[in-house]
Design a protein around this nucleic acid. Structure first.
Lengths: 209, 209
DNA sequence: TGTACATCAGTGAACGCGCGTTCACTGATGTAC
DNA sequence: TGTACATCAGTGAACGCGCGTTCACTGATGTAC
């Protein structure tokens, strides 16, 4: 229906099929989940023949990579916004954490594709650490602002990693029904996120109360 | 080869095909990854016709569930052992965390199947919370031993969730090459795990140093 | 103890399916002269 | 400004593949008498 209508009005040359394919992929992703993301289905959704994508992507993997990269960009922007909006230095880390988890909640399948792609390569995208406004660097810089010692490289990397792991862990867990009653008891989903982060000191041994 | 040999000596009735199928699945899982886990491939690996598994499992999902459940059992045992072995109360939480991450490192694909099954149902297995020696309960009880207030139900659940998320996050991250240099700098993988956990207080706001 | 028979747990062929990818093709576009 | 031609970006049919599942079947087992 939708595709047929698009096909009628579309000229032989699409204009920006690459863009259209990525958009189609993201649309399908959030409506049908990652397992429904076949190259053929994406072409179908974009109203184009199964062979057309090969003029823009070497193979299915390359399309997935493009989708994932857009996801990382979106995540960066979400964190930038959260960081800018947070009032005090003290609040910034929690704000980053909540923004991270909200991103995953709002784009669950995209989030999955981002990490699946990385897992296959056994490495996160390079630009995560290299680019200055990358998500990783924003967490690290915020930690420094909050008082972490920028001279202690290993310590800082560990802390950044710890924050990232915590956020990722919650991001993956938060969608389980198991926690619904907790969210209610606490007064909302964001409060739940903050509540979890507040307890993240539990593994610490060096600062007994 | 292997299957052929097995087929020669095997009688018409297998004896315990259910067990053999789960074993075959786990073998394939760790050698070829979760995406290679088709019902047909499992039957092949077990040296049996593609239709045979249907006498023991309703469908592919039921086999996967059985595999996942075995995974949860193994995780429970790993945590029990770690908890028993840890010397002081203070060390137990870290020991649990490290044991959790090591389990995921040693059984990466099984770990994946455990959570994938849960994600589809949007809920973790029921027995995770119900059974007394479940992984979840062990974390919770250890927190109480370490001084958490068992009367504050919500707080305790939050803390347990926080610990679980932290461990899960690290478990998924730890396999990325990105962290190899950190592991070296710190002096080993386990030290890296402990180092990350030690920084897990970073989201805390209520206890400024 | 022997036998008829129901039941259980396999077989192997077949079903339809959607997939990723390739191929020879053709319509549209842009550029050199 | 007009035209020949190379290049680009589509088409649609076809390839081989492995999948989950079903089916009619058969060999092995166990049980009632």
């Amino acid at each position: 229906m939708r595709e047929a209508a698009a096909a009628e009005s579309r000229p032989y040359h699409h204009g920006d099929l690459r863009r259209a394919l990525i958009d189609a992929a993201r649309r399908m992703l959030e409506s049908d989940g990652p397992s429904a993301l076949s190259l053929r289905a994406v072409a179908r959704e974009a109203g184009v023949s199964p062979a057309a994508p090969y003029h823009h992507f070497k193979d299915k993997g390359e399309l997935l990579d493009a989708v994932a990269e857009e996801g990382w960009d979106m995540l960066n922007h979400a964190l930038t916004a959260a960081r800018a909006k947070a009032s005090g230095v003290k609040d910034k880390m929690a704000a980053l954490g909540v923004a991270y988890v909200c991103f995953a909640r709002d784009n669950p399948s995209l989030y999955r594709v981002m990490y699946d792609g990385s897992r296959d390569k056994e490495d996160l995208p390079e630009h995560l650490k290299m680019t200055n406004d990358s998500a990783y660097c924003q967490v690290r810089d915020t930690l420094v602002e909050a008082g972490a010692d920028p001279g202690d490289e290993v310590g800082l990397e560990l802390a950044t990693t710890a924050a990232w792991c915590a956020a990722h862990g919650l991001a993956e867990m938060a969608s389980f029904k198991q926690f619904d009653h907790l969210k209610v008891a606490i007064g909302g989903e964001e409060a739940f996120f903050r509540g979890v982060f507040e307890h993240m000191k539990i593994f610490a041994q060096d600062e007994p109360k």
